[in-house]
Write a protein that binds this DNA or RNA. Sequence first.
DNA 1: TAACCTACCAAACACTTGTTAGGGAAGGGA
DNA 2: TCCCTTCCCTAACAAGTGTTTGGTAGGTTA
Lengths: 204, 204
Amino acid sequence: MPKQNDSKNVTPSPARRGELLGVAAEVFAAQGYNATTVRKIADEAGMLAGSLYYHFDSKEGILDEILSSFLDELWQGYDEVLAAGLGPRETIEALVTESFREIDRHRAAVAIYQKESRHLAQQERFAYLVESQQKFEKAWLGTLERGVAAQVFRSDLDIRLTYRFVRDTVWVAASWYRPGGQHSPEEIARQYLSMVLDGIAVRI
Amino acid sequence: MPKQNDSKNVTPSPARRGELLGVAAEVFAAQGYNATTVRKIADEAGMLAGSLYYHFDSKEGILDEILSSFLDELWQGYDEVLAAGLGPRETIEALVTESFREIDRHRAAVAIYQKESRHLAQQERFAYLVESQQKFEKAWLGTLERGVAAQVFRSDLDIRLTYRFVRDTVWVAASWYRPGGQHSPEEIARQYLSMVLDGIAVRI
DNA sequence: TAACCTACCAAACACTTGTTAGGGAAGGGA
DNA sequence: TCCCTTCCCTAACAAGTGTTTGGTAGGTTA
């Protein structure tokens, strides 16, 4: 399955492609996918709209490549954590930390994912978004259940509500996070984990 | 300032307008504002695209009315809570509960607000989104600071991080919440507050 | 020098978009 | 009966959309 246009007799350099993908991701994240015109992307990259089609075969293809390469890297990190055989609490800690590192590295892609994944998932081309989301839920929900069984997580909470709570608190951060800001990803992860695990109220 | 088209010699009924606003909000929330065509909205309402312009003067006007009427109602509830003179913890509890009630009543509007407000706020027409967001931050951040001073909230956390944490955990719920589901808004608020205040870990 | 490849431009294409203008059907009030 | 109001339709417009086609400047290779 050719993802780029190697059906034609051209071979764009991966380096330039990478640059353009970065530009496109920034614009998509800022304006939204549908509100972004290919002329705007080209403009931001210092070229004309048609020239983009030397590197990519469609606007949708650009989006596809941004999201799938992000998810590939995400799961590389997640699978490593899940294979480490940690306890439930340590697994959650490692997943959250890894998530904030991904937000740090793929801020734009995460923002796009959050805004668009819901209605993109309905299209066949982006079916992998659904798969990823299911795998995601399995990993997090499973860990939480293990934690409840091991009596390290509270058993008086609706587990699905807890799952959504933890998942969302982590990933929405991409909407305000700016790399090179006051806190490192690890520091943010540490504070978020402290809030999620122990709450923001003073212990009596 | 006429928000509808009363410059022309027509007077659409508020009831029908309300119905159409509801339809439009649902479609906007599901597909995203820019990805939604006025033909799609009209289709969902059982009429043709041009007919919408009997009730509204533009697509943007529809969006404007959805968002502003939601914010109006939101602040009606918030102002009541803030004027009640409650303690910091009770204020947070009341604000969160009120927020979930708003999500219950204006699910679509909240979803639209979350997806689009960031880049809409740049337009002059939607300047009230910025005002609202500032007022919002002032209310929540102020309450959290009061709580830290009164030693009911932890002082070892970055207060801005805490603010974003609480704010986001509450409002993202609109992306998965469905009215008439397993839990009432009040029950969700109760569990969320329990997680935010006391954490999900078992207390040792 | 000649052939070739990379990376872009110029100009157009077909289509979709939000929006408008004029008209008409249904019903109520005079 | 006639008029007026409400609500929608038909048909079109102009602007903007993603995309294609053919061409070309500049470098690399033979």
